[in-house]
Nucleic acid binder design. Structure first.
Lengths: 123, 123
DNA sequence: ATAATAGTTGAACAGTTGTTCAACTATTAA
DNA sequence: TTAATAGTTGAACAACTGTTCAACTATTAT
């Protein structure tokens, strides 16, 4: 899904390459890992089910059952998505008896959402 | 890929539903369309090839061939991704002879990138 | 102990996504 | 006109993703 940064051969048969531009840009590119991490972070938000769950939890702590009713989805589907959100530390949970309550892990979500919501609005 | 918001039946067999919480949260949820648009916007950034292209163009206007050399990818692969970025108005292009120069369409990208880069760093 | 319930999990499935390949258009040069 | 080149495009393919289903664990109640 990515490539290292040396090829420069066989990948392009062009003759009108702007080598100076390429060299300059290469010097300004961030670490490859950073760009991969960024893409992965964005991908988490790139699903409307997860976005809906995060908006719901932004409003109030909820159990899996509540969320599944709110979103009109099975508990299983919701649980799978909660697991993904938990893996990247966007949500946390506490267990009371057999009920598991989920909530936002921190304010990161709100920050990112409001920053990007403006962008979406403008398009 | 989404659901409308009335089911409330058959989707959850729970008996320990917090109906008051669900009602309150439902009142605070944004428009369904907004959440879908947000997810779609995030999905664009959710691929490392596109992120790398955007970082490259942030540094300098480039032709397809330059980008393909820089990233070590075929012109075709790059062109396909540029088309996606063009569709959502993140990049623009100008044609000089048979060379097509791409550049960022506005400062949106930089705003979003810097806002979200912090988030990625912190994790 | 037994039954019921909240939630989780893995396999399976369909739908989507990114890259490759080959064929194509458009522009330039001979 | 013809050949060469920058870039685009659609089909095909493999890899990935989200939901469903059935089976499972853990907790509570009888």
């Amino acid at each position: 899904m990515q490539q290292s940064f040396m090829p420069e051969i066989a990948v392009c048969d062009c003759e009108s390459i702007h080598e100076d531009v390429i060299a300059a840009v290469r010097g300004q590119m961030p670490e490859e890992d950073l760009m991969i991490d960024m893409a992965e972070a964005f991908r988490i938000f790139g699903d409307s089910t997860r976005v809906r769950i995060l908006f719901a939890l932004k409003a109030h702590e909820m159990c899996v059952c509540d969320i599944s009713v709110l979103l009109g989805m099975t508990k299983s589907a919701v649980s799978h998505q909660l697991r993904i959100l938990k893996q990247v530390n966007l949500v946390k949970h506490r267990k009371v008896g057999r009920v598991v309550y989920y909530s936002l892990a921190d304010e990161h979500v709100e920050t990112i959402f409001s920053a990007c919501m403006e962008h979406v609005m403008e398009e």
